[in-house]
């Protein structure tokens, strides 16, 4: 049932559900799903999902991310960042590939491939 060879290397999946608050410097070696509240900083080596009811006041870095809720803080994504239609980002974005759905709000600078491409205000 379990993969012994890879078991120790993977960080496992972290879920912060509704009704749970995290304060401080949160780090994960694996994938992270957030539906609750986070204050501080978030570092996820894998994929980050921010649910529609999530409230994040933190600087965020992740391998890739899909955001449906609110983030107040700077965000750095090495892969692709998907901002879904009701998402809101108050902070600067540094990303390799960016997808913004109609209705998503970005209040901050967007930097792609290490260069500032645009400055967006909702």
């Amino acid at each position: 049932m379990f993969n012994r060879d890879e078991g120790g290397r993977e960080g496992g999946v972290t879920i912060i559900a509704r009704g749970v608050r995290v304060e401080g410097d949160f780090t994960s070696d694996g994938n992270v799903t957030i539906e609750g509240e986070v204050v501080g900083s978030i570092k996820a080596a894998g994929h980050l999902e921010v649910g529609s009811e999530a409230k994040i006041k933190a600087d965020v870095s992740a391998g890739s991310a899909v955001v449906a809720g609110d983030i107040s803080g700077n965000i750095v994504v090495t892969g692709k960042l998907d901002l879904l239609e009701n998402s809101r980002l108050d902070g600067d974005v540094t990303v390799n590939v960016l997808s913004v759905a109609p209705g998503a709000k970005i209040n901050g600078r967007v930097t792609m491939n290490g260069k500032i491409e645009t400055e967006a205000v909702s």
């Binding site: 960080g11 496992g12 999946v13 972290t14 879920i15 912060i16 559900a17 509704r18 009704g19 749970v20 694996g30 539906e35 609750g36």
Partner: peptide
């Protein structure tokens, strides 16, 4: 694995209905 289960009040038509939120932290 730390598994946290709490009841959270849901919005919508039934104010008293609660949903269980399950958090998991390795």
């Amino acid at each position: 694995e730390v598994v946290i289960n709490i009841a959270t009040k849901s919005g919508g038509w039934n104010f008293w209905r609660s949903e269980r939120g399950e958090s998991v932290l390795p």
